[in-house]
Amino acid sequence: MSQQHESTRVVRAREGSPWTGLGAVIMEEMADSLTSARMRILEVLIALTAAGTVFISVQDLRNTVGEDPFLLLKLFTTGRDPLPSFAGFLVFLIPLISIALAFDAVNSEFSRRSLSRILAQPIYRDAFLLGKFLARLGTLALTLTVIWLLIIGMGIVGLGVPPSGEEVARSLWFLLASIFYGGIWLALAMVFSIVFRQPATAALASIAVWIFFTVFWEMLVGLAVPWLRPLKYGLVEEVLAQEQLELALNRISPNTLYGEVLLALLYPSVRSVGLLLPFQLYRAVLGNPLPLRESLLLVWPHLTGLIGGTILLFALGYVLFQRQEIRA
């Protein structure tokens, strides 16, 4: 009985895998992204940033070689005023690259009038959209990996100290987090590229969201928290509750999430990314680095949050795209 039910369902279902042709779309889109003029500009921008910040940090670190067991990580985190560290730059650069890669992903197909031609080929829209997304994520991952390798290479040459396994592992996790931090902004820009027919509008909307989270979110949270959780009696519990709410709200912003991941992974001595309560310091040797496992545990929710956010935004774009009429 159940088998019969199963078979009727199969007959009603769409034939074939939704991912037919996915590989072809990814290859094409990735070739397109990698060779585009805009990617060239971004690559130059990141390379200059990386070279500049690493040069400065190598100069600073030369004096302290041997004192710090995590020299390699310092390459990412040492800045000299007014220049932020490379990791600090990434917080801004990654959204910029992601938005630049994805803001015209879908609407340009409408304006070029190539969409109906492509979708008249034996592929589903599913493969088309996912292919576009994965190609861009791949481009971003490739770029970030190259930069990561360059920095480590420059560090080894500049400092003359080989990185330890722990350092490489930490920086690899950092790379992964960076890719998915980019993924969120990619997926967001892609949603806007589906919603708005004009690429310029989509770009502007994406940048608006980015500025909102970069500049205004923290301010808004700062204003909202005392109003949501007023201090009535000035008790410690109240202050704590306020702080916790503030932290939770701030963590809605991918920038905060990424910033905290960065902190925990690149500064091994960081013991908490939130409130540091006295009991957490019980028997702790201050300044002593945490093992990688412990640091990862600290930001595990952040990492899953970044990945989950990426998937959620992509799913939103997917639903919107499936419902769109092909004819412009």
């Binding site: 009603r12 279902a13 769409r14 034939e15 074939g16 037919t20 008249a120 080929q121 034996p122 592929i123 589903y124």
Partner: peptide, 9 residues
């Protein structure tokens, strides 16, 4: 509707 891939091929 159900066999778009075969049709479009």
């Amino acid at each position: 509707v159900l066999q778009p891939l075969s049709v479009k091929a």
